[in-house]
């Protein structure tokens, strides 16, 4: 448990950091909007993600597994276009962290 940052820094990750992660970023923005949270969402590739320190990391299982320790909260996303599922995952994870 920690204090929620005033503006959440969310990082969407994928292999090349330009196609799939961009779609995830858009889905993430929709989900965060509905949760009424102020957030900056960016997207990047796996190797650049290693040097970043986001509040929330979102990506596929195969990538999140390679990024242990990156992100206070890590969320594994199966369906990159399902904003309803991601909203529910975010709500749960943020509540668990005491951020919601």
């Amino acid at each position: 448990m920690s204090t929620r940052p005033e503006e959440l820094n969310v990082l969407a990750v994928c292999g090349l950091g330009m196609g799939t992660s961009l779609i995830l970023r858009m889905t993430c923005e929709t989900a965060l909007d509905r949760l009424g949270l102020k957030a900056t969402v960016s997207h990047t590739d796996l190797s650049s993600a290693v040097s970043q320190n986001p509040d929330v990391l979102v990506g596929q299982g195969m990538h999140v597994a390679d990024l242990a320790g990156i992100g206070t909260i890590q969320i594994v996303v199966e369906d990159f276009v399902d904003d309803v599922a991601l909203e529910s995952q975010l709500r749960q994870a943020l509540s668990d962290e005491g951020w919601l």
Partner: peptide, 9 residues
């Protein structure tokens, strides 16, 4: 990079 391009079922 693996089959990450399978972004949805």
């Amino acid at each position: 990079n693996g089959p990450y391009i399978v972004l949805s079922p």
